[in-house]
């Protein structure tokens, strides 16, 4: 007898199989294709592609951009989540909506806005040029574009959790004599650490993998303004497929590590909640 609120065993397995097949073909197969293409001629050409000076420069640049953008958006996201989740003030909902706005903006537009501000024909372009400062087609532009596309990640993961937690714990800390900083460090931060980590992981994955926005501001100068995703494109357009897929495989690996870490963090959250 099948309980009335589930499906017969056979149908159940059929659905599970269908879902697995779907995800396998639609999501996993592309991933497999990347690694296969990268290793088409074996390991040595892949290593060669990855240890190429331009590839190394791209890896270094990607790390540098993420190392600047992620902390900035983490601090901003913390501040934003703190004031939205802990206080009531007019315009709170609007503030949250504005923080999430970059998610609904095309990556290319996210790059474009910086060109409009700082490009040769942008608002501040001539002023900057007169002083020999370059933002577009240089590292600052890459950082700004990355900041824009990764802007909401941390705030967005923190706000729902902090709203649910409420402010009682911080109030209790205040009655026990804790200063604002003590309360933040000893009560708030430990309470949100897993969600914060999860937000930072996602922010970092996007920062390292962003393509559209940085492509607009980069100028594609090899060894100088090429991040890893941009390097992939250049190699691909030059028909250096092994090289392109080798760098792509490295990025895919980063995605897999992110997903794994996120799964671990979520298990940590679950344990933290059950403990």
């Amino acid at each position: 007898m099948t309980p009335s609120t589930t499906e017969p065993r056979g149908l159940r397995w059929l659905l599970i199989l269908l879902a697995a097949l779907l995800l396998g073909v639609f999501l996993l197969l592309p991933l497999a294709a990347v690694f296969t293409e990268a290793l088409r001629r074996g390991w040595p050409p892949m290593w060669q592609a990855l240890s190429d000076p331009d590839a190394l420069a791209a890896i270094r640049l990607t790390l540098l951009v993420a190392a600047i953008a992620v902390p900035v958006n983490t601090l901003g996201g913390l501040a934003g989540a703190w004031c939205i989740a802990r206080y009531r003030f007019p315009g709170r909902a609007l503030l949250l909506a504005l923080i999430e706005l970059p998610f609904s903006v095309s990556p290319v537009v996210s790059g474009l806005v910086w060109v409009l501000l700082f490009g040769a024909h942008g608002w501040f372009g001539p002023w900057l040029e007169a002083r020999g400062l370059q933002i577009i087609f240089a590292v600052p532009g890459l950082v700004l574009a990355t900041l824009f596309v990764t802007f909401p990640f941390v705030a967005r993961t923190l706000v729902p959790l902090m709203q649910e937690q409420g402010r009682e714990a911080e109030e209790a800390a205040a009655t026990l004599g804790a200063s604002g900083w003590q309360s933040f460090r000893r009560v708030t931060l430990p309470g949100i650490r897993w969600a914060l980590l999860s937000g930072v992981l996602l922010c970092n994955a996007r920062a390292m993998g962003e393509f559209g926005a940085v492509s607009v501001v980069s100028g594609h100068i090899r060894g100088e303004t090429n991040t890893m995703p941009l390097h992939v494109e250049i190699l691909y357009n030059e028909y250096q497929f092994v090289g392109a897929f080798a760098v792509a495989a490295l990025l895919a690996l980063l995605a897999l590590v992110t997903l794994g870490a996120k799964a671990l963090v979520e298990r940590g959250t679950a344990r933290g909640a059950a403990a």
Partner: peptide, 21 residues
């Protein structure tokens, strides 16, 4: 005088214990 300087004991309705401690 801010809350933290009043040295009053406050017991919250739902206790507000620090969950991670």
């Amino acid at each position: 005088v801010p809350a933290r300087a009043r040295r009053l004991g406050f017991v919250f309705q739902n206790y507000a214990l620090f969950r991670h401690m």
